[in-house]
Amino acid sequence: MKLARDTWLTFQYETVLLIRNPSNIAITLIQPLTYLALFTPFLKGVMGVSTYGDAYQIYVPSLFAAMGIYSGLYAGFALLAAMHQGVISRCRVTPVSRIGLLLGRELMYVVLIAFQAVVIALAALVLGLRVQPANVLFALVLLSMMVLLGVSISFCLAMLVPNETVLPTVANSIAQPVALLAGVLIPLSVAPLWVRNVALWNPFAWGTRGMRAILEGQLRGSVVWEGSLIMAAVAVLAVVLTSQLFSREIA
C-alpha cells in the first residue's frame, strides 16, 4: 500500500507540473500531427495501397510506436534536470519510497503519451482511418508498455551519464537505430532480410507489429499476443532494473 500511495503522490506532483504548462503538451503534438498529414500520402504511394484509410492503418501504429520510442528515450532529460536542481535530493529526506519516486514519474509519461496518441487517433479518423474504438484502446495498452520500456532505459542513461552535453548524443545514438529497426517510418516487411532478422531482437519492433495488427482488426493474430508478451516481459524487467539503479544512486 505504501508503494502505491507514494507512486500516486509522485504521479500527481509530476502531472500538476505538466498541466501548468499546457503549451508544452501542444508543442509536442506538432510533429506527429505534421507527419500524420504529410507523410501518409508518401507512404500510400510507396506501399501501393488503394486508399488513404489503408495507409493510415499502416502508419498510425508506426506513429504511435515512434511517439513511444522517442518520447520515452528522451524522458531522461527531465530526470537529469530534477537531479541537478536538487528535487531528487530534497525527496531523499522524505519518507516517500525511492521506487515510488521513479514509478510516479514513469506513469506520468505513460498518461501523457497515451493522451497524445488519442489526439492522433482522432485526427486520423477525421482523415480517413477506420478502426474499432476497442482496438484503439488495446493499442494504447501496448503503447503504454513501450513507453515504460523507453522511459526506464532513458532514466538509466540519465543516471549513468549525468551530463547534459553527452546525454543527448547517447540518447540519439540509441533512439535512431531502435526506431528504424522498429519500422516506424517504413514497415519492416519491405526491408531486406538481414534487417528483419536484426529487428527480431528489438522489442519495439514486436510492439509496432502488434499495434499494426491490432488496428487492422487482427486481435487474435499471433503477432499481437507475441508482441504483447514480449513487450510486457521486457518492460517489467526494465522497470525492475531501473528501480534498483535509482534506489542505489539516490540512497
Results as ranks from 00 to 15, higher is better:
T10K: 00
T10N: 00
E14T: 11
L17V: 03
L17R: 15
P22H: 06
S23R: 06
N24T: 12
I25M: 12
I27N: 11
T28E: 13
L33N: 00
L38R: 14
F42L: 15
K44E: 15
G45Y: 13
Y52I: 14
D54T: 12
D54F: 03
Y56A: 05
I58F: 10
P61L: 07
S62R: 03
L63K: 12
I69S: 06
Y74T: 15
V87W: 08
R90L: 11
C91N: 09
V93M: 00
V96K: 00
S97F: 01
G100W: 02
L103S: 03
Y109G: 09
V110R: 02
L122K: 08
L125Y: 01
R130Q: 14
A139V: 07
L142Y: 02
L143A: 08
L149V: 04
S152V: 04
I153M: 10
P162K: 13
P162E: 12
T165I: 14
T165P: 01
T169S: 12
S173C: 13
I174F: 05
P177H: 08
L180S: 07
G183C: 10
V184T: 13
P187D: 13
S189E: 15
W194Q: 09
R196D: 09
N197T: 12
A199S: 13
L200S: 05
L200G: 07
A205N: 05
G207F: 03
M211E: 11
R212D: 11
R212N: 10
A213P: 04
L219H: 01
R220S: 10
G227D: 08
A233R: 05
V234L: 04
L237A: 14
V239K: 08
